[in-house]
């Protein structure tokens, strides 16, 4: 078991390195850099090649590419993400500002999704091909089809027209004023949570259906076990693995993937920071963000694999 975990753990690093290299290269293929972006944004500035060269030198952009990459990697090893090329502030600070918000929305959306998905998925599986199943399936396919940003627009529109009310626009940390905080963040969490729950509902349904056909369920029923007990003890427990995986992976994606929904609700989260960083050609910040988002996914993936191996001995002996 430990050998498997160690092997799987070490496998994370080549992937992370790959992500780092890919991001590094992709960013530098894009025409223009932060200096050009800054001067294009400033008004009445003419492009003085000398000044620009000086600016580049200050940011280390005149160094050969391999040197820039090695510097970045060396920084990472010392847990130093460096400075944002645009604001000059430490990247850890820039990310810290937004991380709490993104994390909270992601956690709340996961709660919404789990609360919806598990009961709905089980109900649909138990009543397969009845109206219950059809309603749940249509509801969840609609969840996959509705863009969460549009759902967000509709929510805001509804509040505005019906209640003449808008969610607060400024972020208040939860511990400062929980009500103000929830009044702002519940809506994006619901908008995203619906889509997310659709993914999880479908997984719950298909996993349950598969498990319900297993021999041990038939055995349990033949023994005359109480149906509820069979469902909870035997079926649900075994069906939960893929469901937990999907919820975990979606959660990892939500941390950075809320790009569009954040725009609608005017949230200053990691997604918005990412879009800004790309537009400004802020290499260091973009790299840090991509690596953060990708490592969230890779780590969750690792944890899921370990959990699978722990629960299913066949995997670790393969």
């Amino acid at each position: 078991m430990w050998k498997y975990i160690l092997k799987r753990f070490l496998l994370m690093f080549p992937t992370l390195l790959g992500v780092a290299i890919l991001t590094f290269i992709l960013l530098r293929i894009v025409p223009g850099d932060v200096v050009e972006a800054r001067y294009a944004a400033g008004q009445g500035q003419f492009l003085d090649q000398k000044v620009m060269a000086m600016e580049r030198a200050k940011l280390g952009l005149d160094q050969p590419l391999w040197k820039q990459f090695v510097d970045w990697m060396w920084g990472l090893v010392r847990l130093d993400l460096g400075l944002s090329m645009w604001t000059g502030a430490p990247i850890t600070e820039e990310i810290k500002l937004r991380f709490a918000l993104s994390l909270q929305v992601a956690v709340m959306a996961s709660i919404v999704a789990t609360l919806l998905a598990i009961p709905l998925g089980i109900a649909a599986a138990l009543k397969q091909d009845t109206w219950v199943d059809y309603v749940v399936r249509v509801f969840s396919i609609a969840g996959l089809a509705t863009p969460s940003f549009w759902l967000g627009i509709l929510m805001i529109l509804g509040f505005l027209i019906i209640f003449r009310w808008l969610p607060p626009m400024v972020y208040t940390p939860f511990w400062v004023d929980p009500w103000q905080n929830l009044a702002q963040l519940v809506w994006p969490a619901l908008a995203v949570g619906y889509r997310y729950s659709a993914v999880a509902t479908r997984m719950t349904r298909s996993a349950m259906l598969e498990v319900l056909r297993e021999d041990y369920i038939r055995t349990a029923r033949a023994k005359g076990l109480w149906l509820k007990l069979i469902l909870v003890r035997h079926a649900l427990k075994n069906a939960m693995l893929p469901v937990v995986t999907v919820i975990g992976l979606e959660f990892a994606f939500l941390l950075g993937g809320l790009v569009v929904t954040e725009q609608v609700f005017n949230l200053n989260g990691l997604g918005l920071l990412f879009v800004e960083a790309i537009a400004r050609r802020d290499y260091t910040l973009t790299q840090a963000l991509v690596l953060l988002i990708a490592s969230a996914f890779i780590v969750v993936n690792f944890l899921m694999d370990v959990m699978y191996a722990w629960l299913d001995p066949r995997i670790r002996f393969r």
Partner: peptide, 22 residues
Amino acid sequence: QRLMDVFISFPLIILALAMVSI
């Protein structure tokens, strides 16, 4: 497979965004 793992580690929208800006 390792290369695919790298690409899959990016959320769909993030990779698409990066590609569009390139």
